[in-house]
């Protein structure tokens, strides 16, 4: 295993090629593996098995997530969750899930390489992302842990508000779109294109 060459979608983009004048920081998060989990919250056996295997309850509320230790579970739809875990731990976690889930009607599938996570961080993260999505990221409901599937720059994506101070979002896009979305973010995140929406501002001339 040691000499396997792992190449994430954005690994060919080097930090030194990043423009200096960005108003947010952009990073690829490539050290997270992902498991797509399907099952019904109405099935107590499924819920119990999933919770036991993951060590954390499945978030039942739409647009929410739950975290425990290294494992984060994102709500994706009424019967779908995206479990993220450090790369290298996914096969063990998957086996554990499969074993616990047994014959319950459910499906846990390794999708670690299907998506690319782009982390957008900084005081302007919300307004930079709002150039590509109609979702109101300034709404008070956007708190740490908030998750939403959305259309970003005309591409299907999921967005998780990781933490504030500074505002940090993880944008999940399917791997093949990573370069396009990265280019798109480079274009809209330039300091000169900064947008401050609401808040104190210099009074316009009269």
């Amino acid at each position: 295993m040691s000499d396997l060459q792992f190449r994430s979608a954005l690994s060919h983009r080097r930090d030194e090629d990043l423009p200096m004048d960005l108003c947010v920081s952009l990073d690829e998060v490539s050290d997270r593996a992902m498991i797509d989990l399907r099952g019904s919250l109405d099935d107590p056996k499924f819920v119990a098995a999933a919770t036991a295997a993951l060590g954390v309850a499945l978030p039942a509320q739409p647009r929410s997530s739950s975290v425990k230790g290294d494992i984060t579970v994102l709500w994706m739809s009424v019967d779908q969750w995206l479990v993220t875990t450090p790369r290298g731990s996914e096969q063990a976690l998957l086996s554990k899930l499969v074993k616990r889930l047994g014959n319950t009607f459910s499906f846990a599938c390794d999708v670690s390489d299907a998506r690319t996570i782009i982390r957008v961080s900084g005081g302007d993260a919300r307004s930079v992302l709002m150039k590509g999505t109609s979702v109101d990221l300034q709404s008070p409901v956007v708190k740490p842990g908030w998750v939403r599937r959305l259309l970003f720059a005309e591409v299907a994506a999921a967005c998780q508000f990781v933490h504030s101070d500074p505002d940090t979002f993880d944008v999940y896009v399917f791997r093949s779109y990573a370069d396009y979305v990265w280019e798109w973010l480079l274009a809209v995140a330039r300091k000169g294109a900064r947008v401050q929406l609401y808040g104190k501002q210099e009074p316009p001339l009269v």
């Binding site: 590509g132 005309e154 370069d179 274009a187």
Partner: peptide, 18 residues
């Protein structure tokens, strides 16, 4: 808007694209 130049169309790349 931003969808001009190399961002005119959404382009999907396969893993050995490079």
């Amino acid at each position: 808007g931003t969808n001009a130049g190399n961002r005119f169309l959404v382009v999907r790349r396969t893993p050995p694209y490079e």
